[in-house]
């Protein structure tokens, strides 16, 4: 719990909240109205089986495409965060390479239904069994657990936006050239998040719960990298020729 920096006024925090929330809403892939209209239809058993009977490489490719689509929205989100584009190009790339998938996992709670333990994927709601063909049951189950636990916090869009920005602006990423600049941005974002949580009269524990989520996100992403390496070792040509180029750039 750092003391608020004397250089950040309440007006500045309010402005930051506005900018980051607007950026989030403009780039969140699915609008709240669309989410409400989306039929909460789960895949039928025959559809689940059809995903499960896909060759492992086809399922990996499908998921790589979906992740890449989601990441493109995160890149747009980053570009609209106040101060992000003022960072040097090296640091913009470092932050997105390390943090874009983490933000995709954070955003997943918007399209996750805790009751049925399913996530919006490829047109309907999918439970963990849909992803069996990937051969990464443990990772999938951790991703679902993470989404469920994010949902249980019932974050508002403002809070989600600020937490996403906080994750993206992590100043402890390796290879940053202007660490101090990133640290300043992250600290301001954290103050804005605290400000919003206070304004929304959230209980004190939410911020510390969110801090725990940061380490959970890192673990999910490093396990994704491990699973990809294992997959690539068996199917190097599939990754090389069929995976989206942006996915390969980020995780290769």
């Amino acid at each position: 719990n750092r003391d608020p920096s004397p250089t950040v006024s309440l007006a500045e925090l309010d402005h930051l909240v506005q900018i980051i929330s607007k950026s989030h809403l403009e780039t969140c892939q699915y609008l709240r109205e669309e989410l409400q209209q989306m039929s909460r239809q789960n895949f039928q058993q025959d559809e689940v089986e059809s995903y499960q009977s896909k060759p492992r490489e086809a399922m990996w490719q499908l998921c790589a495409v979906k992740i890449t689509e989601a990441i493109q929205y995160v890149v747009e989100f980053a570009k609209r965060i106040d101060g992000f584009m003022d960072l040097c190009q090296n640091d913009q790339i470092v932050l997105l390479k390390a943090g874009s998938l983490e933000v995709v996992f954070v955003r997943m709670c918007r399209v996750f239904d805790s009751q049925s333990n399913s996530v919006y994927f490829d047109g309907k709601f999918a439970g963990p069994d849909v992803f069996k063909g990937l051969g990464c049951d443990d990772l999938i189950s951790s991703v679902f657990d993470f989404a469920k636990s994010m949902c249980s916090l019932h974050l508002t869009e403002d809070e989600l936006a600020l937490f996403s920005a906080f994750v993206l602006l992590s100043a402890d990423r390796s290879w940053l050239q202007e660490k101090l600049q990133v640290e300043k941005l992250q600290q301001k974002t954290q103050l804005a998040l605290q400000h919003v949580l206070q304004k929304n009269q959230r209980e004190h524990g939410v911020l510390s719960k969110l801090r725990c989520k940061v380490s959970a996100l890192r673990s999910l992403c490093s396990r994704h990298t491990e699973k990809l390496s294992a997959f690539r070792a068996v199917y190097p040509d599939i990754v090389q020729t069929h995976f989206p180029p942006l996915y390969k750039e980020l995780f290769g």
Binding site: Q72, V75, E76, K79, R80, M85, Q89, N90, Q92, I93, V94, L96, K97, W175, P245, L246, E249, L250
Partner: peptide
């Protein structure tokens, strides 16, 4: 890093719509 991340760099360069 920029050289190894041409697509990401390009996405960052594209103006926001």
């Amino acid at each position: 890093l920029k050289e190894k991340h041409k697509i990401l760099h390009q996405l960052l360069q594209n103006s926001t719509s």
